[in-house]
């Protein structure tokens, strides 16, 4: 050990120095023996890292300050807290909204009916939901494709067979897949809520082409999706009053879940991680004090030789 220390640090750590200066950290630093070029290199790397970070931050800020859309206000979501789970009753209502309103144009191709089990539906309910759709399957024994009722393992059906068909049916605009939409848009669920409730008449001077509507939260303001959520456009099975903002809030929560199905587990895990890391930090602190106690409390005393 001592030989290794000597090879790397010379005698700096091995020679005995007065007890007071032993505790000074600069004597333990290896930087004093670096060559001048090394110091300059490290300094340059530090400066470049800091500069790039500042530049990225500034660019991000400047992008937010310009642009043609209004940024969505932050809503008081019940899942916003560090340890707050999604509201599963709201996810269930949001699924109703998606199924009865959004699914007319938007696909949700990465979510399967089995994903609903234990989140918003029981297994029997999810099976019943899946059986309402028809899925093309095959080939059977005679080589023909056939339609069958959906199973739990089936993914949500898409309203159009492909993007071209979707564009042709929607005036050239492509209704995006909603599976990850909450993660894919700036503002996430705030954006979805603001967009769905933010339709109003175009202000003077804004020219909309046919089939376009004005929405200040959409980049450019001209959106090809008409307003779809109105008060009481659908009816909730649990009796919640279906106001426009309630519908928008529930579908935004549902789409937050489809984007981040691991959301609840992640926050549950955070509590465990804090507990374990807190314990490990306490142990590390104790062991550090324990190992250093001999070094910090030693005294070197000069005792003159008696003649």
């Amino acid at each position: 050990m001592a030989a290794t220390l000597r090879r790397f640090n010379g005698f700096r750590l091995l020679k005995s120095t007065p007890a007071l200066s032993l505790q000074q950290a600069k004597n333990l630093s290896t930087a004093s023996s670096w060559a001048n070029g090394n110091k300059k290199l490290i300094g340059a790397v530090g400066a470049v890292t800091g500069g790039v970070g500042t530049l990225l931050f500034a660019l991000e800020q400047s992008v937010q300050a310009s642009g043609t859309e209004v940024h969505p206000p932050a809503q008081p979501w019940t899942h916003k807290g560090l340890f707050s789970s999604l509201d599963h009753q709201s996810i269930r209502r949001g699924y109703e909204v998606y199924k009865q309103v959004c699914s007319a144009c938007h696909s949700l191709q990465y979510i399967a009916y089995r994903n609903l089990i234990g989140v918003s539906h029981t297994e029997a309910e999810a099976k019943a939901e899946a059986e309402q759709i028809m899925v093309k399957d095959g080939p059977d024994d005679t080589g023909n494709f056939f339609d069958r009722p959906g199973k739990l393992s089936d993914y949500f059906p898409s309203p159009y067979p492909n993007e071209e068909a979707a564009r042709a049916a929607n005036n050239g605009a492509y209704p995006p897949d909603l599976s990850y939409i909450s993660s894919a848009r700036h503002g996430g669920e705030d954006y979805i809520f603001a967009l769905l409730t933010g339709y109003h008449d175009a202000p003077a001077g804004v020219v909309l082409r046919e089939g376009q509507y004005f929405n200040p939260y959409f980049a450019g303001g001209a959106i090809s999706m008409a307003q779809v959520l109105y008060n009481e456009v659908i009816e909730y099975e649990d009796g919640t009053p279906p106001t426009q903002s309630q519908l928008a809030k529930d579908v935004a929560t549902f789409l937050k879940w489809t984007s981040e199905p691991e959301h609840d587990d992640r926050k549950r895990l955070l509590i465990k991680v804090i507990g374990i890391l807190g314990f490990l930090t306490a142990i590390s602190y104790y062991i550090k004090r324990h190992k250093w106690s001999a070094l910090k409390s030693r005294k070197i005393v000069f005792v003159p030789k008696e003649k």
Partner: peptide, 29 residues
């Protein structure tokens, strides 16, 4: 240690989010 951490964190989480989790509402369905 694992059992203690696991059970206590789950209890904390379930208490904070009481009423919002699936297991709180699944009785209705």
């Amino acid at each position: 240690f694992e059992r203690a951490i696991d059970v206590s964190s789950n209890t904390i989480y379930d208490t904070i989010n009481k009423g919002k989790l699936w297991k709180d509402i699944k009785g209705k369905y």
